[in-house]
Design a protein around this nucleic acid. Structure first.
Lengths: 202, 202
DNA sequence: CATGAATTAAAATAACCATTCTAGAATGAT
DNA sequence: ATCATTCTAGAATGGTTATTTTAATTCATG
């Protein structure tokens, strides 16, 4: 039985990523996503139960793609390589990188996410936490809350913030001087930030 | 002529700041802001032409408050003191700090902002740019775009990202280990990040 | 003490968007 | 060939929330 689907989950996810990268999450309306994917709006609901579910899938896909590059070095205690992996990934996938940069917890509201996705997101978070722990272990540091937070900033939040001037959206009109920078500068800042923060581990 | 106003601009701005701090910008609906301020929704429109204008005023007020603390040391080339000022300010005004942390350009959309506010925002941006330039000058560095971006990350974006684990909202349910940290840890990370980035100036 | 500008107050409206619905079309199984 | 199922297609619906409107209130001023 059944008719072949013309649109896949990924069609809508990818369309949403592009829209978010350009105009922020607010620009990713269901109508806009459908239009970008060349589909009628109704079709999205055959793939995703709600907009919240779709946006959660977007967030998960981006974070998972990033984690795939970072976890191997991280689990071997190679912090420098992990940060470099982040930068290379962001350079290669600027749209996904912008999704990560623009992500805010309160975008995900609604406890009504599909169970499956919820599990995947938990697993991913767990893997990232394990990666940070591995990093600490390799450096013979305690697995304290402060050390974990420090490592998280050193490896993720710091470098991502450092990439901000490089990850400018396309449509910006008046970009002040201090909001633009080339890849090399951002890379240096991200690495410096990571090293300095990791030196603080106790 | 005229009746005395019962509500001031600041009533609504402050109510909005609290709401944003707790539930993100999406929680700051006109109805919620009015309720929090103890006013009817309609009254807000006697102070602000639109929600966009109000939110822009919120953003400007928070950034201006922060800048007031940071610009003096910055203009004297005291980068360390500037970052400390940021941390102290965030510690003292967590709600405003969260507004800064959660701020995203695309929240400000709509080119239809009041001229006056637009001017104020331009002036503020200019002052911040001048502060960064002063910092570079004191260190005998060139005023290149990369150096400005680097300084901006060192003084603003980096430290603010470092404070994230300390600036957790109240309502969070399952805060993963690596997302919480005390003030001391965050302070150390912010300062380390700043120092390391400033060392990269050319 | 009347006047009217500026306001409070709350209800009405309108715009935007997610979601649902109705119809028709494709596809594989029986 | 027919049926059940899953899809496309796009219009209709409904809920949320910004904004407007209308009426009543206040108060400095002439």
């Amino acid at each position: 039985m059944v008719r072949k689907a013309e649109f896949e989950d990924s069609s809508f996810i990818e369309a949403a990523i592009e829209l978010i990268a350009v105009g922020g999450p607010a620009a990713a309306t269901m109508a806009a996503i459908a239009r970008a994917a060349g589909a009628p709006t109704g079709s999205i609901y055959h793939r995703f139960s709600s907009r919240a579910a779709l946006l959660a899938a977007v967030w998960h896909q981006c974070l998972a793609a990033l984690a795939a590059k970072m976890l191997p070095p991280l689990n071997q205690g190679q912090s420098e390589a992990a940060v470099k992996a982040l930068i290379d990934w962001a350079t290669k996938h600027p749209a996904m990188a912008r999704v990560v940069l623009l992500h805010r917890e309160d975008d995900l509201i609604d406890g009504e996410l599909p169970t499956e996705l919820h599990k995947q997101m938990n697993r991913l978070n767990q893997q990232l936490g394990a990666g940070l722990s591995a990093l600490l272990s390799h450096r013979q540091k305690t697995l304290s809350t402060s050390n974990l937070a420090l490592a998280n900033f050193a490896i993720f939040d710091g470098p991502i913030a450092a990439l901000k001037p490089f990850l400018r959206g396309p449509k910006n009109v008046t970009p002040p001087n201090h909001t633009t920078a080339d890849n090399g500068t951002c890379r240096a800042a991200a690495l410096a930030c990571a090293r300095a923060s990791l030196d603080l581990l106790e």
